[in-house]
Design a protein around this nucleic acid. Structure first.
Lengths: 250, 250
DNA sequence: AATTACGCACTGGTCGGACCAGTTTTTTGT
DNA sequence: ACAAAAAACTGGTCCGACCAGTGCGTAATT
């Protein structure tokens, strides 16, 4: 299905192993056959096997310990529901916050411009998006939240801004988006976010550019820091789990 | 900072290359030195280099083409200048000012972050770029001006910011760049620009983030408005010419 | 006999050289 | 001058060797 064997041996072997891992043929924490074993069984040189393994390591699916072997490191056994989250951007979490740093500026600018330049039509759209979002079920408002912000960016009447923000958003992995949305599950966060949305809305509608910028920036920053908190918590959980496991295996 | 060199050679080489990519030392789409070259330059075997490259490939930071080489595949997707949408807008002067509007924010943020996060090495680079620029012949300092701004953006240590600003800059047509440079011909503008540069430089070096942001934003805004003025003047000239023609043909 | 220590048989990590296969540049023969 | 052949790149694959951690079983020591 997703068999892209693209370039060649090492690639296809990596894909093959990945498939086995995702299938569950290779359970998490289970030991992967040794390099020499794979090499002879697959009829390729050991170098190729090593390249394939490094490829998987790059994706964080594998961990290798000198003298012991390589092990599947699917952190969370849960199929593919809620928490492959961390693993994806765990190595790049820094970049994620860099991204928020940029977004903070641009969303702020967008809100300010929207307050200044929104036409009546824009204001109508913003109002509609806002009301729809407020009335909606908190669990399903991912799209609506997005639509609200989008309506504001569009009201800024700056295509470059729109374009850049779009590509930044598409940069965020779905998992991260999901995580952001999961903030809504925590009542305190949800309320804070709602408050921010209201502030942004009113500021833009009442054409108070300065306030709009401030509110939008605060909003992005809040989301970013909330995410950071969650990451910190999960890191602790993971570490705790690992410690626990080591205790058990000791 | 995030330098986990953990296991060994291939890992640390991968990390090193990743750093270079994120830093912008290796621009997107740029060719990475050949495996044999890296191998000899880093003093390790080619196999190790290959493993490091595969690691990066696994993370999607690299693409490799047989017989050609390996290439940085933009971590931060380029703000597509090729997208049909942008294609339409490019060239419209209105879009140009939208662009400056965005740049104003981002350059400001970059300067502020640079003031906060610049290492000694960064400061040295910035100082060198600044002094070189000041000492240079005003007519040929297009490159140097660019280098100065770049050194500051790099000192912000935010790869997303770096890449976005890079792609924005590439959006500006050469003609525009030339026009900006032509501002230097007018003594008043030139002096103002120099003053801005000095302010930015001193603010960043003395770690005054707020001031740095303000200066950088003022700088971009000034350039933008100067350009607008020039355009206005030229428009008058053109209109005058057109009127003249109509008179003649009447 | 129990315990320690050594050593062998694993594991991954690194090396160098060889060769194949695409791509680009240079040379060369008409 | 031009087109074809050749040389000089590039990455892709293989081999065989050796080093370095790890673990286990056996032999030496107590």
């Amino acid at each position: 299905m997703t068999n892209k064997q693209a370039n060649s041996t090492s690639q296809s072997i990596a894909a093959h192993l990945e498939q086995m891992i995702l299938d569950g043929s290779l359970a998490p924490e289970s030991k992967i056959p040794s390099e020499r074993q794979l090499s002879s069984r697959l009829g390729v040189s050991r170098a190729i096997v090593r390249e394939a393994l490094h490829e998987l390591h790059g994706r964080g699916m594998i961990e290798t310990r000198h003298g012991k072997g390589s092990f599947v490191s699917c952190v969370v056994p849960q199929v593919d529901e809620s928490t492959p989250l961390m693993q994806l951007y765990i190595g790049h979490s820094r970049t994620l916050y860099d991204l928020f740093e940029v977004r903070e500026q641009l969303e702020g600018q967008a809100a300010a411009l929207a307050a200044e330049r929104a036409t009546e039509q824009d204001q109508y759209r913003i109002r509609k998006a806002f009301e729809t979002m407020e009335a909606a079920d908190p669990l399903t408002n991912a799209e609506l939240d997005h639509a609200f912000h989008r309506s504001i960016v569009e009201a800024s009447h700056n295509p470059v801004l729109l374009h850049v923000l779009n590509s930044l958003k598409s940069l965020m992995l779905d998992s991260v988006q999901a995580a952001v949305m999961n903030l809504a599950h925590r009542k305190a966060f949800k309320q804070q976010i709602d408050r921010h949305h209201r502030q942004i809305y009113h500021a833009v509608i009442s054409r108070q550019a300065r306030w709009a910028r401030k509110a939008a920036m605060a909003h992005v920053r809040h989301v970013s820091e909330s995410l950071r908190q969650i990451e910190e918590q999960e890191k602790h959980l993971i570490r705790a789990a690992l410690d626990q496991r080591e205790v058990e295996s000791a």
